[in-house]
Amino acid sequence: MTALPTSLSGKDWAIRTSGLRKSFGKTVALRGIDLTVPEGATYVLVGPNGAGKTTALNIILDLVRADGGQVEALGLDSRRDGPALRAQIGYVPEAQKWECNWMRVATLLAYHGQYFSSWDDEYAARLVKRLEVPLDRRYGKLSKGQARRVQVVLALAHRPPLLVLDEPTDGLDPLARETTLSVLAEHMAEYPTTLLISTHLVHETERLADHMGVLNAGGLRTQVPVSDLQEMLRRYHAQVPEGWSGAGVLDGSVVRRSRNGREIQWTVWGDESMVRASLTESGAAVQDVRALSLEEAAISLLSDEETSHVEA
């Protein structure tokens, strides 16, 4: 049977990391990840808090040094060409507070714009209006949601070829979230951009994503095109006979299993007709097969395969 893929096929990468490792003291944040973001993709990196998402993004931007491994982004070695690379990246950091807290937002925009030759004042003004950013307030006095919107303007207004967004919808109310997604979608339609978005709330970015990587406990469980995920990942609901001996069938392809008496519910990666056939052959009577939303898929992929919801 086919196992869950952990690498993407292709050759034009906006970002490619190999064997990225990082520990903070005794805590292992990343245990050798090979993350690849195709050029032009919208890659959503999913994982629970503490999975290593922010660490991975920070290493890509060369804001944090890795213990081992390499990052190539936009054809540059992030460690050697950090500044040149960051000049081509629009970045929304996870943390809101920084050294510009005392600036009024208008000043902050002007100041930030100085760093980028491609900064577009007119576009920045349009974004400010769309996102209802208060220009005359001090940045440090903004609410979490307002600060996040300022960050989005800062990231987009120089029209970088690569956007790295760390929890971009965090702290936004539903309306602001819709507006932000709309702004991003319009930006993508207008300028060729690669996006790397980290989130622990998949459903918020589901409509933008075309690739998904699942990071858990410092390891990349999978990275796949969303279209493959929709085609290959299914939840199978089946009845099994008393003393069923087929528990080992499809080993390596079962992403998550749960059992309740004679009913099993398995989430399996593979061609549907083949999975059905294998289950039937093992004596299970398949009753229902359904595709999963991106969020359901992410949750399945993040849960521990064997121990999840096993009820005797």
């Binding site: 819709e178 997604l181 709309s182 339609a189």
Partner: peptide, 16 residues
């Protein structure tokens, strides 16, 4: 337009 619809729905323009 693709741009308009992507913005209105907040979906990936490639999907549109």
């Amino acid at each position: 337009s693709v741009r308009q619809l992507a913005a209105d729905l907040g979906v990936n323009p490639n999907t549109v």
